[in-house]
Nucleic acid binder design. Structure first.
Lengths: 179, 179
DNA sequence: GTCTATAGAGAGATAGAC
DNA sequence: GTCTATCTCTCTATAGAC
C-alpha cells in the first residue's frame, strides 16, 4: 500500500499497474490480487488509510500547537512535507484527476476527506479570530476553502516545476499571516 | 483537437485513447495517426494551441477591462468558465498529473504557460497597487503565485465535487478584494 | 500466501490498398 | 486522407498447483 499510495500520488491512479507493484514489492501480480482482488478494492483501501492517517496528523498538530497561527503554519509544513521534493501531490488531488476511473464510493470518500480538512481549517481560523494569531481574517467560512485551494494549487505548482520553491512562493503570504 | 483537449482536461492525458477519439470524431484510429503520428505529437500540439488561446484571452481581458480589479475578476471568470460545470480542469493542471507520460518538451511548455500567466497576474497586481482597485495588496511578486495556486486549487475542488459552487466559495475572498 | 500460466480486452503504432 | 488489417505490448483479472 505504501508503494501504491506513492505511485498514485506521483502518476495518478491509472499511472501504475499491478505489474509495477509486483516488481517494486518483489512478488508476483497474482499475489497482489490475493490481497486486493480488484483495483477498485485497492483504491478504497488507499483512501481509507489516507483519511485515518490525516485525522491523526491533524489531531497531532492540535496537540502540539496552541495558537491558530502555529497550527496553520504546521498545516502548511505538513502539505510541504507531503510533496516528497515535488514528486508527489496529496491523494485527494491525485484522485481528483483520476476521477473517471474511480468508483462512486471512493469519490465520496475523497469528498469526505476534503470536508474533514475544511472543517479543521475553519475551526483554526475561528480560533485565530479569538487569539489574534492569524492576521487579516475576513470570514473563516470562506478563508478555509480559499486556504485549501491554495495549498492544493501550491502542490500542483511544485509538481509541475518539480521544485519545492514553487510551493514556498505560493504559500508565502499565507505563512506571513501566521504569528 | 477539441475532443482531445476536453478529454485530457477531463480524464488526464492517459485517460483517453486514439480509439476514443476515433469514435467521437467518426473516423478510424489510423486516420488520426495520419495527423498525429504519436500521442507525444498530439500532446505538443495541444499545449501549443492552449498557450496561443490563453495569450489571446489574457490580451482580450486587458483590452476590455481598464482597472486591475476588473481584470482580476475577469481572470477568475475565465477560470470558472473553463470548468465546464466541474467536468474539466485547465490543461496545465491535467498535464501536471500526467507528468510521467509526457515528454520533456511538453513539460517545459506547461512551465512556460504557467510563467506567462504568473507574469500577467503580477502585472495586474502591480497595476492594482497604482490604481487602488484591488484591496490589501502585500507583495505583487507573492500575490501572483498565491493567486494562481488558489485558482488551480479551486478548479480541483470543483472537479472533485463536480460542482461550480466549490470554485465559487474558494475564490470568494479574492473576488471580494476586487473593485 | 505465493506461484505459473493464461485469458480477454484495449492500448499505441504501422503497412499498404484505395 | 481514410480505410482494413495486423503487430506488439501491457493491462486487469482468474484458474489452479504448491
Amino acid at each position: 500500500m505504501d508503494f501504491a499510495e506513492h505511485a498514485a500520488r506521483s502518476r495518478g491512479f491509472d499511472g501504475f499497474s499491478y505489474g509495477d507493484m509486483a516488481v517494486a514489492i518483489g512478488i508476483r501480480k497474482a499475489s497482489i490480487h490475493h490481497h486486493f482482488p480488484t483495483k477498485a478494492n485497492l483504491s478504497e483501501a488507499l483512501i481509507e488509510r489516507y483519511q485515518t492517517n490525516l485525522q491523526h496528523r491533524l489531531a497531532e498538530i492540535e496537540a502540539t500547537h496552541a495558537t491558530a497561527g502555529a497550527r496553520l503554519k504546521a498545516l502548511i509544513a505538513l502539505y510541504r512535507a507531503a510533496l516528497d521534493d515535488g514528486r508527489t501531490v496529496c491523494l485527494c488531488v491525485a484522485f481528483s484527476t483520476s476521477r473517471e476511473s474511480l468508483s462512486k464510493v471512493v469519490i465520496a470518500k475523497v469528498s469526505a476527506v476534503r470536508a474533514m480538512i475544511l472543517q479543521w481549517i475553519t475551526a483554526t481560523f475561528e480560533l485565530g479570530q479569538r487569539d489574534g494569531s492569524i492576521s487579516a481574517i475576513l470570514d473563516p467560512a470562506y478563508e478555509a476553502p480559499a486556504t485549501l485551494a491554495m495549498l492544493e494549487g501550491a502542490h500542483l505548482a511544485a509538481r509541475t516545476e518539480e521544485d519545492l520553491v514553487a510551493f514556498d512562493v505560493a504559500t508565502r503570504l499565507l505563512n506571513a499571516r501566521c504569528q
